[in-house]
Computed example of a mutant assay.
Amino acid sequence: MTTVIELESVSVLRPGKALLTDVSWRVEDDQRWVVLGPNGAGKSTLMQVVGAQMHPTSGTADILGERLGRTEVFDLRTRIGHSGTAIADRIPPAETVEDVVVSAAHAVTGRWRETYDGDDLERAHQILGELGIRALSHRTFGTLSEGERKRTLIARALMTDPELLLLDEPGAGLDLGAREDLLMSLEILSTAPGAPVVVMVSHHVEEIPPGFTHVLLLRDGRVVEAGPIEQTLTAAALGRTFGMRLELNKVGQRYAARRAAFGHRAG
Rank of each mutant, 00 (worst) to 15 (best):
P56E: 01
T60R: 13
L76I: 04
A107Y: 11
D62C: 10
G84H: 03
H82E: 02
M54F: 01
D99I: 05
Q48S: 14
I63A: 04
P38A: 08
E28S: 11
T57Y: 14
V73L: 14
A61T: 03
L64I: 11
R90E: 15
T71Q: 03
L36K: 09
L76Y: 06
V35H: 05
V27S: 02
A104D: 13
R26K: 15
A104F: 11
G37R: 09
V100N: 05
M47C: 04
S44E: 03
N39V: 02
A41G: 12
I91K: 02
V100R: 04
G110W: 03
Q31M: 01
A41T: 05
A94D: 11
G69P: 07
V101W: 08
R67N: 02
T45P: 15
Q53D: 08
G40F: 13
Q53R: 03
A41D: 08
V101D: 05
G81K: 00
R90L: 15
R90M: 14
K43R: 09
P92A: 01
T85I: 15
G51W: 12
T71G: 03
V108M: 13
H106D: 09
G37T: 10
S103P: 11
H106K: 12
M54H: 00
W33C: 06
G65S: 07
P92R: 01
V100F: 12
R90A: 10
R113T: 12
P56S: 00
L68H: 01
H106Q: 08
V102T: 12
R111D: 03
P93N: 01
A107W: 11
V50A: 03
F74I: 10
I63L: 11
V97R: 04
E66M: 10
R77G: 02
T45V: 14
V35Y: 08
E72H: 13
V34R: 02
M54A: 06
A88T: 01
G110Q: 02
V100P: 09
V50P: 09
L36S: 09
L76W: 10
G42L: 13
Q53M: 09
T71F: 09
H106G: 02
V49D: 04
D99L: 15
T45H: 09
E98N: 08
V73H: 05
D75I: 06
G59Y: 08
